[in-house]
């Protein structure tokens, strides 16, 4: 993975709006074939960071390089390598889909003979085949979002930057878009910002968490799910014994009663005391019903990390 070439590299980006510093000293790296998820609360500075990376805003400090081109010094070459879907898709409501995508292609310097091919391919990818002649203003929100994504892909850019790409879509469309992003992630580099953690779980290779304009956590999304993980399970015993008896089982660290019949049991990582507990339950007639291992949800991890930072 680390052998893949760097496609986007940002160093020490800072951006103020008046006296308020919205982005503070952010550094990012992205390689080909990677999908990076930018996570954060509302107002954490995600959209501003993405606007900095695409050249819509200039940073007050810091440097951005896209495919080896400096965004400040060679903006044309650098921007030609980027496809960007902003928070609000930049759609001209009175144009039809084909005309709009053709305009986007020309604007991004797709050579004239290749436009028809790029148009057909992009429409296929975003399942827009039937909407070519429709006026954008008459499309539903989901379709508009897809046209917005199509606009970011039409010139086949190295780096694709999507700001909350699945907002306002129905569940099946969300699935389609996620499949598409995953597919794009194989040949290109993708950055997407989101506050949907499920999205990160299902499609991102790497996660950066943003909080108050700073990146506070960065790791692979699989690792993030392990963050702060405590092995344990929840067990239902219809005829529970005294707490002391449960705590006496070897390996158990802590027993918390959730209700009269539900217990959260935390154990050490090495021991598997679940089997032992079930054995004893059968012996002593505790009437064990259900045993569910504790799973750290990304949400908990996220809350944990951002709260740690706030503290």
């Amino acid at each position: 993975m680390s052998a893949a070439p760097l496609t986007l590299c940002a160093r020490n980006l800072s951006r103020r709006f008046g006296p308020r510093e919205v982005v503070r000293n952010v550094s990012l790296e992205l390689r080909r074939g990677e999908v990076l998820g930018l996570l954060g609360h509302n107002g954490a500075g995600k959209s501003t960071t993405l606007q900095l990376l695409t050249g819509a805003l200039l940073p007050h400090a810091g440097q951005i390089e896209v495919c080896g081109f400096d965004l400040a010094r060679q903006p044309k070459q650098a921007k030609a390598c980027i496809g960007f879907l902003p928070e609000t898709p930049p759609l001209y409501r009175d144009m039809c889909v084909d005309d709009y995508l053709e305009f986007a292609a020309k604007l991004h310097g797709v050579p004239r003979p290749q436009i028809a091919g790029a148009l057909a391919e992009t429409k296929r990818r975003c399942s827009l085949q039937d909407t070519g002649q429709k006026i954008i203003g008459t499309l539903s929100k989901g379709y508009r979002q897809r046209v917005g994504i199509a606009q970011a892909l039409i010139h086949n850019p190295e780096v694709i930057i999507l700001d909350e790409p699945t907002v306002g879509l129905d569940p099946s469309q969300i699935r389609d878009i996620r499949t598409l992003i995953r597919e794009l992630g194989d040949a290109h580099s993708v950055i997407l910002s989101t506050h949907l953690l499920g999205e990160v779980e299902s499609i991102c290779d790497r996660v950066e968490i943003m909080h108050h304009g700073r990146l506070i956590y960065s790791d692979s999304s699989a690792h993030m799910q392990q963050y702060g993980h405590q092995p344990g399970f929840v067990v239902t015993l219809l005829a529970p014994p005294a707490l002391a008896e449960l705590e006496a089982i070897p390996g158990v660290l802590k027993v918390e009663p959730i209700s009269a019949t539900h217990f959260r049991i935390l154990h050490t990582a090495e021991s598997n005391c679940g089997a032992l507990l079930l054995e004893r339950a059968a012996e002593r007639g505790w009437q064990a019903q259900q045993l569910t291992p504790l799973q750290t949800k990304l949400e908990d991890v996220f809350m944990h990390i951002t709260q740690n930072e706030a503290a």
Partner: peptide, 14 residues
């Protein structure tokens, strides 16, 4: 107002 300016601002045009 329609936020379409972003398309022009992020496209490789001056």
């Amino acid at each position: 107002r329609n936020r379409t300016m972003t398309l022009l601002m992020t496209a490789p045009v001056s």
